[in-house]
């Protein structure tokens, strides 16, 4: 490593086989639980991994701890460590939106956030939109407008719509069309989703059922 980087054994205090070398970075092979501290630019900086390190995540208002490697994404930590499987892994490349969660009020692809980075942030998943057994208005609107079929994209879509409405409480149809480009659905539920967003925004009553020879318009 360049300049005066010094290593200081700290943190977990576990032994490591390989140390940082002057010319470059080498990885320690054994599993190191915890972190070590190195001195760079006059300050002590903690370096984690590559083995498992303890993390603490605040998800849906509750604090959780786990041990993961730095390469574990927030999505994988939620699913594998916290058993919160509402966020789905589909494209795993920041495209499809099935893994969408809210991080400090913003919609993010949890497949593209490391679990380590997400520490200290407020994370909300689709599960976290419930108040007890009560559904969030966006969730209720998804049901009323049948905005799900197989439902695999649905939790991510619900979360994306919730943040969208937080920011645009009275969206125009055009804003709805343009504001939800980060989620993909394979079954084709977009007509229901558009209607659900409009309903959740306006809280207008559900379409009335019944009747023969029905024509249904999915424009909006």
């Amino acid at each position: 490593m360049q300049r005066d980087e010094k290593m200081k054994e700290k943190g977990s205090g576990l032994s490591r086989r390989t140390f940082l070398k002057v010319s470059g970075i080498s990885l320690s092979v054994p599993v190191v639980l915890g972190h070590r501290t190195i001195k760079v630019a006059g300050a002590e900086v903690e370096v984690y991994g590559p083995g498992k390190v303890p993390i603490a995540l605040t998800v849906n208002g509750a604090k959780h701890t786990a041990e993961v490697e730095p390469r574990v994404t927030l999505l994988e930590a939620l699913r594998h460590e916290l058993d919160l499987t509402g966020a789905k892994r589909v494209c795993d490349r920041a495209t499809c939106g099935a893994c969408t969660v809210i991080m400090d009020g913003k919609p993010v692809y949890s497949c593209s956030v490391l679990a380590l980075e997400a520490q200290g942030k407020q994370i909300t998943t689709a599960e976290g939109l419930l108040r007890g057994d009560r559904l969030h208005p966006v969730q209720q609107a998804f049901i009323d407008n049948d905005a799900q079929q197989c439902g695999f994209c649905t939790p991510g879509f619900v979360v994306a719509c919730k943040v969208f409405l937080d920011k645009n409480p009275n969206p125009t149809p055009e804003e709805i069309q343009k504001g939800l480009g980060g989620n993909l659905c394979r079954c084709g539920t977009y007509v229901g989703v558009r209607a659900a967003v409009a309903q959740a925004a306006n809280q207008y009553p559900n379409r009335k059922g019944g009747g023969n020879q029905s024509t249904s318009k999915g424009g909006r």
């Binding site: 589909v90 494209c91 495209t95 709805i176 989620n183 659905c185 007509v191 558009r194 023969n212 020879q213």
Partner: peptide
């Protein structure tokens, strides 16, 4: 073999859809 270039329509790409079921 990904969802970036294996392209699916998004919510803003489908226009207005009108469905009429023949019943009765």
């Amino acid at each position: 073999p990904n969802m970036e270039f294996y392209k699916l329509a998004g919510l803003g790409d489908i226009g207005e859809l009108v469905v009429h079921m023949m019943t009765g």
